[in-house]
Write a protein that binds this DNA or RNA. Structure first.
Lengths: 117, 117
DNA sequence: CAGCATCCTCCTTGATACTG
DNA sequence: CAGTATCAAGGAGGATGCTG
């Protein structure tokens, strides 16, 4: 986040903003949340939780809140009983997906590469 | 890293490897180290330290060791007095640079975007 | 269903001092 | 110059229990 960026980031004088992006997508589940929403579209909380096997309720909520605050995901509440809450990517969030695809490809190559070491 | 990946990663059954990539580039200085080596080429330890203002010796050493272990950077020692140690990217490391460029662009867009919220 | 509150643990980072 | 070693602190993340 730009405001407390000076505490965490060292890329001097805004010459590069990699760290800004990484601050958004790091965190144990953020990338996976974004990837899931990006490839599978809008999802409710419980669906998301099921997709991300192993995530705790607390962490999912927490990371979704942060992403929402940053304007990367939207949270839509349907005032029903039982409550329904849906999450989806904003435009800014969708623009991360192609980058994730590249990271995914790199990751696969890396795994192969490591076998050759 | 693939071996202890099960502890940290949740992308089930290797369907996506984003997390593998993120594990490499996360860590407070890793991305910046790679970016610097990628854009400015081979550097010695002290040059790198100067480029990454704010990094402690310990952290720089530590993160370089990890990157080296992963085969992302190479470490070349010239047995002189005083010692000279140079770091540079491997082929696998260089392939991250285009992705970093995209993250950089996204970061800049994000900063503009946040002003409109 | 979708959360919040609490407590607790471990890992990352920081500070500092010492060395071939 | 380029490290290693040690100690300490803070925060991210996990476990569990309670609600509208």
């Amino acid at each position: 986040m730009p405001e407390d960026r000076t505490n965490k980031v060292s890329c001097s004088n805004y010459r590069c903003e990699i760290e800004v992006a990484l601050e958004i997508i790091s965190g144990k589940w953020n990338a996976l949340i974004l990837w899931t929403l990006g490839t599978e579209g809008t999802k409710r909380f419980s669906e998301l939780k099921r997709s991300l096997s192993g995530v705790t309720q607390k962490m999912l909520t927490q990371q979704l809140r942060t992403l929402e605050k940053h304007g990367i995901v939207t949270r839509t509440i349907y005032p029903e009983v039982p409550p329904v809450v849906e999450y989806s990517l904003t435009e800014m969030g969708k623009r991360l997906i192609p980058i994730f695809k590249d990271l995914d490809i790199w990751g696969k190559e890396f795994i192969e590469y490591r076998k050759t070491l």
